[in-house]
Structure formats: C-alpha cells, structure tokens
C-alpha cells in the first residue's frame, strides 16, 4: 500500500526535522503519561501489595473490582471524567476540564488498576517466598509493604511499563477531557486521530511510528536494566 512508504518518509522527516510542533506534542504526551503513571504507581503499588498480603473483609471483592477495572474502556473513563470535571459537574468549580491536569487524572484512573492488578500477582509470588521471614522479624504491615515493593521492583517495572503503554496509547479519555487543544492539550494519539480524520493518513501513520519508536526506546531502556539485574541474579 502506497501509504506505508509515504508514512516512513513522513516519520523520518518528522523526526529529522525536530519539528517544534511535534516536539511539543511528544513532550506533552510523555509528561502527561509519566505523571499519570507516577501517581497511579503511588496508589496502585501499595494497593496491589495490600491485596496480595492484607487480610481484611472485602479483599476478594476489591480484587475482582481491580481486575475488572484493568480493562476499563478509555472512552468510558473519559466520559465519566468529563461529566465530573465539566463546569456543570460535581468537580466543575475546579475548572480542570480541557487542561493537561484533566488528562493526567483520566489516565491515572485508567492506569492505576493495571498497576495494582499486575503488581498484585508479583506480590503474591514474592510474599509466598518471604512470608515467614517477614512475620518472624515482626515487621508491621507498612514495613512489609516496603520490603515487598523494594524486592519486587524489577517485576513491578513491568507493571509500570504496561501502565505507561496504556497511557501513551489511549486516545478516548484524553480526547474527551483534554479536547485536543492546539499547543495546550494536544498529544500524540489525539493528533493521530485528528490527522486521520483530515485524511492525512501518511502524517498520521508517521506520528504513529514516532509513538512506537518512543515506546520501543522506553521498553529497551527498562529491559536493559532488567537484564543487568538478571545477570546479577537479583530477579
């Protein structure tokens, strides 16, 4: 198909030109998604650990809820976030709709269950290995969470990456609450959607390749860290 060769050329020229508009979009994408993943990790990792080791009523129900939420459709999250953040909504007075902050919130909601759900599995495995030692040493739940999060860190990075991938790749939620406003809330995916709708398929595909390239770079970086850890047998 002719679009592909054009798209490669387009991607190359986009990258080589260091087009400031492109850089702006890429950097906003990264910053919104990284911040969302950071906040989601701060909530999701302790939640995942708590679901793995905690004993409290409703734990199984909460686990099911988290696992279900791992598959939340972005447009649904976007719609709910829109309804809440709209000036007519419950959080309207915050004036957050159509801001990068709103996009961070929506992506955090999308990503947090993924991080919590995936990390829970890692914590379950690690905890079966550590349970007796942690208990014998009389560690408080909080101290146990710290040990588990630290010692599972290489496995947890995979969960964070999955969350980051989801955040950078989704378009439904950021489009609804961000509005794809030029120079303000326009990110990679909303630009791709917009260029597609303008029939600029080569540009859209080129941008898609840039997105993939970034995802590749991030994965390569994390993988190399992991491989180094594996070589030292810490995983």
């Amino acid at each position: 198909m002719h679009s592909f060769s054009e798209a490669f050329a387009e991607a190359a020229s986009l990258l080589l030109s260091f087009d400031p508009a492109l850089l702006e979009i890429v950097s906003l994408s990264l910053r919104v998604s990284l911040l969302a993943v950071l906040i989601a990790a701060l909530i999701g990792l302790p939640l995942g650990a708590l679901l793995a080791i905690g004993r409290f009523p409703g734990r199984n129900l909460l686990t099911i809820v988290v696992n279900t939420a791992m598959g939340l459709p972005p447009v649904v999250v976007g719609l709910v976030a829109y309804l809440l953040l709209s000036r007519a909504g419950a959080l309207g007075p915050l004036e957050l709709l159509y801001t990068p902050t709103a996009m961070v919130i929506a992506q955090t909601v999308l990503v947090m269950p993924i991080i919590a759900g995936l990390s829970r599995q890692s914590f379950v495995e690690l905890h079966s290995e550590y349970r007796e030692q942690l208990q014998l040493f009389g560690l408080s739940t909080r101290a146990q969470l710290k040990v588990l999060i630290w010692d599972a860190r290489y496995a947890l990075v995979t969960a964070l990456l999955a969350g980051f991938g989801r955040a950078t790749a989704e378009v439904g939620a950021v489009l609804m609450v961000g509005g794809n406003i030029n120079h303000y809330t326009r990110v990679m995916t909303t630009t791709i959607a917009m260029e597609t709708s303008k029939g600029n398929l080569a540009v859209a595909l080129g941008l898609g390749m840039v997105l993939l390239l970034i995802a590749f770079a991030v994965n390569a970086l994390v993988h190399s860290v992991r491989v180094r850890a594996e070589r030292a047998a810490y995983v």
Partner: peptide, 22 residues
C-alpha cells in the same frame, strides 16, 4: 482531595504547560 487536585497537579504540570489559564 479537591484541594490536592487544585494545588498539587497544576504545580506538577507547571513545567509541562507553557502558561496556565490567564
């Protein structure tokens, strides 16, 4: 929680965004 959103998030994003609503 609202206070958190109002204060912390915009600060965290300040580097992100050229200028907030003026």
């Amino acid at each position: 929680y609202c206070e958190f959103l109002r204060r912390v998030l915009p600060i965290a994003l300040a580097s992100c965004v050229s200028a907030a609503a003026q």
